[in-house]
Write a protein that binds this DNA or RNA. Structure first.
Length: 188
DNA sequence: CTGTTGATCTGCT
DNA sequence: GCAGATCAACAGT
């Protein structure tokens, strides 16, 4: 039986959680059917310790979810086109933090994803933050929802990925904070 | 109030 | 490899 990750899982250092999420399964319920896949790429975003984070300069209307309870969703609209899906995670001594889910390996409801992604090839179905949000039908409406007791969106235990099979690099698409190796990627 | 920029994707060259 | 799409949030005035 695959268990849903609890708030204890997310109540740890943001980078640790980001690394640990590799191999877990993200599941979305849409129209009564399951859609989802294995998480293969994540990035950690911190607080005042991280100039690339939305939370760097303190709490605002957009980033307030990052200051809210762990294990909830932080979803924002970017570049006028896309939604990025994050999971709030931080140790108890931090005020804000979240993990950006950058890529999943599609496993369930692939037909449904293809439909939503509009005739895109399998390779490009969910390999990017905006792409997987579109494939899973994740929008701003799900911002701040809990992933523990929510039937619409949650994460379960799945594949165990050994630490040495996880690559750590600098994050993508940022201009500051490039010294931090907070991008985690499963080596295929 | 205004200008800038951004945790991106796609299509064209 | 590069530019265009497209707009909300933010910082600065």
């Amino acid at each position: 039986m695959l268990s849903i990750l609890t708030s204890d899982f997310y109540q740890r250092d943001t980078a640790i959680v980001a690394k640990d999420l590799i191999g877990k399964k993200l599941i979305r319920t849409l129209n009564g059917s399951l859609v989802g896949g294995i998480i293969t790429e994540t990035e950690a975003y911190g607080y005042s310790n991280d100039p690339a984070s939305h939370a760097y300069r303190g709490k605002t209307l957009r980033n307030s979810a990052m200051f809210g309870p762990v294990g909830h969703a932080y979803i924002y609209f970017i570049y006028g086109n896309h939604f990025c899906f994050n999971i709030v995670a931080r140790s108890k001594d931090q005020l804000a933090g979240a993990v950006l889910i950058r890529s999943i390996l599609p496993t369930d409801g692939i037909e449904s994803m293809l439909f939503r992604r509009n005739k895109i090839t399998n390779k490009d179905l969910t390999n990017g933050p905006g792409k997987l949000s579109q494939a899973l039908g994740i929008t701003k409406e799900l911002n701040t929802i809990s992933l523990h007791h929510n039937e619409q969106l949650y994460v379960v235990e799945d594949t165990v990925v050994f630490s040495e099979l996880i690559q750590e690099t600098e994050r993508i698409g940022i201009s500051k904070g490039k010294d931090l190796l907070w991008r985690f990627l499963a080596k295929i």
